[in-house]
Amino acid sequence: MSLQLLLVQFLNGLQFGVLLFLVAAGLTLVFGVMDFINLAHGVQYMLGAYLGATFAAATGSFWLGLLLALPAALALGLVLEFLVFRHFYERDHLSQVLATFGVILFLNQAVKAIWGTAPLQVPIPALLSGGIEVMPGLQYPVFRLAIIAAGLATALLLWVLVERTRVGMLVRAGATNAPMVAALGVDIRRLFMVVFGFGAMLAGFAGVMAGPIFSVEPGMGDTVLILAFVVIVIGGIGSIRGAFVAALLVGLIDTVGKSLMPDLMRLFLDPSAARQAGAALASMLIYIAMAAILAIRPAGLFPVRAA
């Protein structure tokens, strides 16, 4: 394992981590403020990717596609909130899980019906194509660096919004004690719609950005959803800071683990067995990490609510 390869894996992990953060941020806020568990958050990421791909193909520009996909993702999120989710705020988590599961089944199939099952290809925009020399003799794709930058910028924006604005203050207060906020005269429903729409848009944004590097296909949101759950469980439900730290952690563990594990296993096993055992172990790594963290801190790294 050379230093160069390690650096590449580190950057890949970072880039995956910020994408996870974009998805997890909405999820953790929605859960934190409304105590609503939204399994359908992953399909919002998928819809973002599809909308981005479609608009980009129609307009011939990735940027126009991104610009059109964001409000579309926001609108779809609000439509879902209006049609389905708001009827389940008062219900138990079990009902919420199942209702949002129903939304997933519907949307995954709808995407198959509209766009087909074959993965869509999204070309990398010309402005960000090619590589950049991050180390002597090491080229790294500009687009992936752009994702990292966009993710970090969004995280910063989110931090300012949540920590420094009035709406952010209400969101934090809502995450700590929603009934109290409502009792103080804040329209918690409207606050939630704002949070929800914003979360849907962030997930959609992650989807658009992921389009050119991952394949855009039905069910792509499910994998991300489960990783996002791992992220918010590790980070502490409702905590943006926790989601950020945990997302980078999960992204790095997953990516670096997948490349290192087979090599590590080769120290003990013969090459073919090492490859298999390494792959199996690498895919389990983040769950093992999650179990380990929860064994020490059951409420996650940055618990919001005093539980």
Partner: peptide, 25 residues
């Protein structure tokens, strides 16, 4: 050790762990 929504997510995560392990066999 956890409860409520944590429990839902953790069982989901462990289930996926089993799934990915099976897929890598």
């Amino acid at each position: 050790r956890t409860s409520g929504v944590h429990f839902i997510m953790i069982t989901l995560a462990f289930g996926q762990m089993a799934y990915f392990t099976a897929a890598s066999l």
